[in-house]
Design a protein around this nucleic acid. Sequence first.
DNA 1: GTCTATATTTGGATAGAC
DNA 2: GTCTATCCAAATATAGAC
Lengths: 190, 190
Amino acid sequence: MATARVEARRAATRTAILEAAWALAREEGLGGIGMRELAGSLGMAASSLYGYFDGKDAIYDAMFIEGNRALRERSLTLPTDLGTRDTLVATARAFIEFCDEDHPRFQLLFQHSIPGWEPSPEAYASAVENFEQMRRQLAQLGITNDESIDLWTALTSGLASQQVANDPEGDRWLRLVEQAVDMYIGREKP
Amino acid sequence: MATARVEARRAATRTAILEAAWALAREEGLGGIGMRELAGSLGMAASSLYGYFDGKDAIYDAMFIEGNRALRERSLTLPTDLGTRDTLVATARAFIEFCDEDHPRFQLLFQHSIPGWEPSPEAYASAVENFEQMRRQLAQLGITNDESIDLWTALTSGLASQQVANDPEGDRWLRLVEQAVDMYIGREKP
DNA sequence: GTCTATATTTGGATAGAC
DNA sequence: GTCTATCCAAATATAGAC
């Protein structure tokens, strides 16, 4: 039966819609995504989008999940045989670069930036999954203490948010990563 | 002449409008501020607001300036005779508490959270002024290096954003302040 | 599945009387 | 200064023909 082909075509269109949505967000900001404009950039009518997504919020949801998956896959490509210090450096650097290379994605994933929208439970689960992955990666480096983990998230998210907000396209905070990691692993010594 | 009285009344109304805007933002989020709703909460017509502000963006601008002034004044009440370590602890703690006690204010001041709005040059100047004040305060503690300052802003803003986003009403990141400061001032030692 | 046409809502802003 | 009455634009979403 042709169901598989139909399904594949449908999935391809969904992917194309999401890609266009990201492109639009990069041009005009997350809030600038409109159903007409989005559909127009694909050469289709706004009403056709509703055959693929339940509405605008569903599109944000799909983008949220996609963004989290991209981060998860990025994290999995990191080397793990560098020793604690260099692994942390690579991890932090990858995270900041991930945030800085796509600001709308950063805002969608980590800031509550869209008035009236919050991720659905399923979408939120993808964020939790990422957090758990980070937890496991830190655990492999011997970092299991809750406070140590919280301090790590504060440090990396602080570097990322400063980089994104105050020096996009630059590296003013990115280049502080080594210093930050050395500070982090050297803590609690007198 | 009555001009002074008139002017005072006008200023009072402006203040009342801003206060109502903050209240509305706390209830429904920054994006939830509408001219009708804002005016309604004050018992006036939406069109009357335009006698006091040029429009919605001007209201955001005034809120931005007011928020920055509140932060500046808060910073000036901090003790300065505690020694470097405890002064930094007090400073960081005050900053995180400032952010956590009013989330819309935090979003307005530190995140680009309103689609289509950015502070006017005058409003932005109030943010720059605060940054310069922080610079001076750090300088008094002997911290003048640009990278050290950037690392400090990353650390404190990271703690604040994690606290606000992931544990509002709690103190999960707030209570890491001492650890974070000790880590910060102990850095660069082998 | 995709289109055109349109319903519906919302929100900022203005006109003009009082 | 404040109101009522609108205007205007943008945006989501739906109906129904093809």
